[in-house]
Simulated scan of single mutants.
Amino acid sequence: MTNIKKIVIAPDSFKESMAAIEVADAIERGFAKVFPNTTVYDKIPMADGGEGTTEALVNALNASYRKVSVKNPINKTITASYGYAYETNTAIIDMASASGLDLIAEEDKNPLITTSYGTGQLINDAIEQGAQHIILGIGGSATNDGGVGMLSALGCKFLDSDNQTLKAGGAALAKLSHIDMSNLNPKLKDTTIEVACDVTNPLLGKYGASEIYGRQKGATEDMIKQLDAALTRYHDVIEQQLNVSVKDIEGAGAAGGLGTGLLAFLNANLAKGIDIVLKETQFTQRVKDADLVITGEGKMDHQTIYGKTPIGVSHAAQRFNVPVIAIAGSLGEGYQAVYEHGISSVFSILQQPCSLSDALENGRQYMEQTAENIARLLLIDKNHNN
């Protein structure tokens, strides 16, 4: 490669090791040791809807964090935070910060009773701040309640045949008789909700929320059947009252059926996380005059091609024929599949066998060294062509 004047650095975070901006900084340091100081580096921290998405979007939108007292999945009060950009009245919310699996102990994992109420509290707070646009990440949930907890916090009432409010959790939905939406927060009508959703599961059945994700949330085989039956009842009532059917829409089963609640009640738009981040960071405009793109993620393997950050970045760069190099913490089975998606070359930062703790602790150093080696390789090509 010759005449590299602008490099776009757009990595994902490296889980438990480096935030995306730290990865980008290390790559820049490595290249700066080799390339002239006139080289322009445009660092764009990326994410694909999972860990680091809120951070990437807060950075991109010049947002700040708000702390809110909310209920966690087992109804205990905690402090959760979300991003808010006052310039554009945009909120960036990660449901895992209020309703995530990591918030509760192993022995407390029970999707029969866990609730998404805290996520609704975060949405409410954002609306009261004046949010007109909410970006909601829904990965890592501890719940299987169809979003009923979230909707309850927003003013909906879910009632049984005796007109009593249902208990929290997925199991109670088996007793759902009717839904009272009269107190749903009216400000929601003026708010666009965009959901970062990277799963395509329907709500029910073999590939549904309960069957595919219930076990990791603490469900036994019997509980999975119970939860699926309860969600079936939930959707039956939605069809009867709202005259809509969303159960088979891709993503309806995301986050324990939260996707269904968002689609049916809040008219939300579900999109791939990487697509949302690319749009909000104005990646297309920033990459079109670049000479090289560097991307990466903690582990690259055969799953990388399914909506992960390096592929989203590569597809966007391909539109302008900008070459892409990827750097990974480690390379797993089938990583070569990325070559069919526009990535020219892949490098691992691990230069010798080492322990996981060593790799995590020294990630910045290894990243910087790898970036420098790549830069020197590109410089050889430049000098040879000259």
Rank of each mutant, 00 (worst) to 15 (best):
S116L: 13
I134F: 09
T165I: 13
V322L: 05
Q241L: 08
K272Q: 12
A126R: 07
T260F: 11
I294T: 01
E361T: 15
S13I: 05
L176I: 05
A96E: 01
V287C: 11
K43T: 04
S330C: 08
T115A: 03
I7Y: 05
H341W: 13
A85L: 10
P323I: 08
F347T: 00
P111W: 11
I27T: 01
A96F: 12
V58Q: 01
I92K: 01
D190Y: 15
G140W: 04
L203A: 04
R233D: 02
V346D: 03
A20N: 03
E106V: 10
D358P: 00
I193M: 13
M18E: 01
M1F: 10
D358Y: 15
Q132N: 10
R364Y: 15
S13Y: 05
V58M: 13
A153L: 08
E51N: 10
I74T: 09
Y306L: 14
Y306K: 12
D301H: 05
I374S: 00
K109E: 02
P353W: 00
H178I: 04
D102F: 11
N185H: 13
S314L: 13
S99Y: 09
Y86L: 13
E333R: 14
I127E: 00
M367A: 12
G139D: 06
E51T: 10
L154K: 03
E128Y: 11
N163R: 09
L378C: 06
G139H: 02
N72S: 08
Y207E: 11
Q241T: 02
I138C: 06
F347R: 10
D162C: 07
N124T: 04
L350F: 04
M223Q: 12
S177F: 15
M181Q: 12
L292C: 01
A271I: 14
E128D: 14
Y234R: 08
V237K: 08
V244S: 09
A264P: 07
A317P: 01
A196V: 06
N385D: 05
P186E: 01
D108W: 14
P36C: 06
P11N: 07
N124Y: 04
I123N: 04
L166I: 03
T114D: 08
T39V: 11
Q318F: 02
I343W: 06
R66W: 03
E372G: 07
G296H: 02
I138Q: 03
A85Y: 14
N144L: 10
R29M: 08
E250V: 03
